[in-house]
């Protein structure tokens, strides 16, 4: 009996302690009244994580509440947004970074979310810098050399990408289709491996984000072109896609969104805070370290952009045989 009582007492004490420790989740009128969780669907410490942390840090100053970054990696950056769409309340306290794979994966296979319906898009933020490099000792001095060689030897030109179905793969195939050439993709896992592949002459070309920068600076790799809108200030000699005769920009853009059905007023508040964040010089400087440039789109434009991207990607993905199989 004594023991029983002691149990009850201990339980009560523990409960009371717990209650004082956590406090109640107070409901209030003015958003935000408690910390906001930002899902970053990538491992901590990567370029996306660090840039999102910098942006979130700046935005939290304008919101007056801290933003906690929750790294929920997996599924090529889709597990985080998908979990949010399925489980989180649209109260503005859970938002997620939306990488382009959220739109692309549904084109390739059955998924649990619908990019058109399941998200409240908030703001478009920035994108990556992609480029094509070759070994410095290679016979290819310009992109035109590659096209000429590929025309004479279809399928002989190999290029390393960080994976099938990544922006790099889709982009390269789009370029090849426009140029009327056939290239062979060799999918690696992540940027580190593509650098080694092209350095060791295992593949002829590399298509990747700016992980190649130190090797280009050291003269070990030659940058043939970049896929950004304008020439990159860090590599003024490399022509853009547009200059090379391909009217495209390929930068795997990303923004943030919440679950569907968010109050437009809350969306507007978040939009304003994040807009100010990407105008912050400190944030711009952090982004520049990863060769990222702010690419602002407001809520409405972002929604339109999602539709456009989905449509243009559908064509390419079906063209290279990655489309969803009807079964």
């Amino acid at each position: 009996m004594l023991q029983r009582n002691r149990l009850a007492l201990s339980a009560a004490v523990a409960l009371a302690a717990a209650a004082t420790m956590f406090g109640g989740a107070a409901r209030a009128q003015d958003y935000p009244t408690k910390p906001i969780t930002l899902i970053v669907p990538w491992p901590a410490g990567g370029s996306t994580d660090i840039s999102m942390r910098a942006i979130a840090d700046a935005a939290s100053k304008h919101l007056g509440q801290p933003i906690a970054v929750d790294n929920k990696g997996g599924g090529g950056g889709t597990v985080g947004p998908a979990t949010m769409a399925a489980a989180a309340k649209p109260d503005g306290y859970t938002i997620s970074q939306i990488p382009i794979t959220v739109f692309r994966l549904p084109l390739m296979q059955d998924v649990s979310w619908n990019p058109d319906k399941d998200f409240s898009y908030i703001i478009h933020l920035t994108g990556y810098t992609f480029g094509i490099t070759t070994n410095a000792e290679s016979q290819f001095k310009t992109w035109k050399d590659v096209v000429d060689f590929a025309k004479a030897n279809p399928g002989k030109v190999t290029y390393a990408t960080p994976g099938t179905g990544t922006s790099l793969h889709v982009g390269m195939e789009q370029i090849a289709a426009m140029a009327g050439i056939k290239l062979t993709q060799v999918p690696f896992k992540g940027g580190a491996e593509t650098n080694a592949a092209v350095l060791g002459n295992h593949t002829m070309l590399q298509a990747d984000s700016t992980g190649w920068r130190p090797l280009v600076d050291a003269g070990k790799l030659r940058l043939l072109m970049v896929w950004t809108d304008k020439r990159s200030p860090n590599f003024p000699d490399a022509p853009t896609l547009k200059e090379s005769g391909y009217p495209m920009v390929y930068d795997s853009p990303f923004g943030i969104a919440g679950p569907k059905g968010m109050d437009p007023k809350i969306v507007a508040k978040l939009h304003d805070a994040f807009k100010k964040a990407i105008e912050d010089p400190a944030v711009i400087a952090t982004l520049a370290k990863y060769d990222m440039v702010p690419n602002y789109k407001n809520t409405e434009d972002y929604k339109k952009f999602v539709v456009e991207v989905t449509n243009s990607e559908r064509k390419v993905i079906e063209g290279i045989g990655l489309g969803k199989k009807p079964n």
């Binding site: 370029s47 660090i50 920068r213 130190p214 090797l215 600076d217 050291a218 952090t286 370290k289 990863y290």
Partner: peptide, 10 residues
């Protein structure tokens, strides 16, 4: 990178 350095041949 966060310190503005690029590990590499240089």
């Amino acid at each position: 990178v966060i310190h503005g350095l690029q590990p590499g041949p240089l």
